[in-house]
């Protein structure tokens, strides 16, 4: 079963092409690493899938539909930006998510906050950047979505929290849901990935399962990445 597929997906900003002719099929029940150097088009791809950007050409289908209100209800998107209002308390943001997303699980969110020692009555204004990112990830992972789009989920947090977060990701999604993680911290996420997608300068460089890579290239994903994207 396919959760996301693209056909000749292209996005350009003026003259600059950010994504060019991407053809992909992403199955359900997988954790996919979307890997590539900075500025390779990872965020653009995720933003299109999240419905924040409109493709210039080609198409993208999520669970049978192009991005819109219906897909947004099934897709849980973690942006690279901290998008939470500074003046809100964590508990108020939880209420906000609960109001708009039918699949939001409050108990799950509260448990995760407790695990990471975050007080729900704290205002975001008083939090460090790393803590804000944790709150955001907790909110996103507390949804029972069909597809999770995580744009740089571990970039700003400490290694201990990184482990907790990765653990949360693999234990929190439904069996038939998929998780797309975009990152350049490959060594950290490699252990949890089922598939990888390499993109470079807006083009699909490689799409394969992690097992295949280990068999055919006899390398770790990190090793292969360093080879493919050698500067």
């Amino acid at each position: 079963m396919t959760i996301l597929s693209t056909k000749n997906l292209t996005k350009s900003y003026g003259k600059k092409t950010a994504l060019s002719q991407i053809n992909l099929e992403i199955s359900r029940g997988r954790i996919i690493g979307l890997l590539g150097p900075n500025g390779s088009g990872k965020s653009t791809f995720i933003k299109i899938a999240a419905g924040l950007l409109v493709p210039t050409a080609g198409e993208i289908i999520i669970d049978g539909q192009p991005p819109g209100v219906d897909t947004k209800a099934k897709v849980s998107y973690l942006s690279e930006r901290t998008y939470l209002n500074d003046w809100m308390r964590v508990s108020e943001i939880i209420a906000f998510f609960e109001d708009f997303y039918a699949d939001f699980n409050r108990i799950k969110a509260e448990n995760m906050l407790k695990d990471l020692n975050i007080n729900p009555d704290d205002r975001l204004k008083t939090m460090s950047k790393g803590t804000k990112e944790k709150v955001q990830l907790i909110l996103v992972m507390s949804r029972q979505a069909e597809l999770y789009l995580l744009d740089e989920p571990i970039g700003g947090v400490d290694p201990a929290a990184r482990d907790y977060i990765l653990n949360t990701i693999i234990t929190n999604y439904k069996e038939e849901a998929s998780v797309i993680i975009s990152t350049h911290l490959i060594a950290d996420v490699e252990q949890i990935l089922d598939d990888i997608i390499f993109i470079n300068q807006g083009e699909l460089a490689l799409s394969s399962s992690v097992d295949e890579i280990r068999e055919t290239h006899n390398k770790s994903v990190d090793g292969l990445f360093r080879e493919v994207f050698k500067c």
């Binding site: 999240a50 419905g51 924040l52 209100v69 219906d70 947004k72 209800a73 897709v75 998107y77 942006s79 930006r81 998008y83 939470l84 708009f100 997303y101």
Partner: peptide, 8 residues
């Protein structure tokens, strides 16, 4: 980023 990813 939050407002445009809401199902509205």
């Amino acid at each position: 980023y939050l407002m445009f990813s809401l199902p509205v």
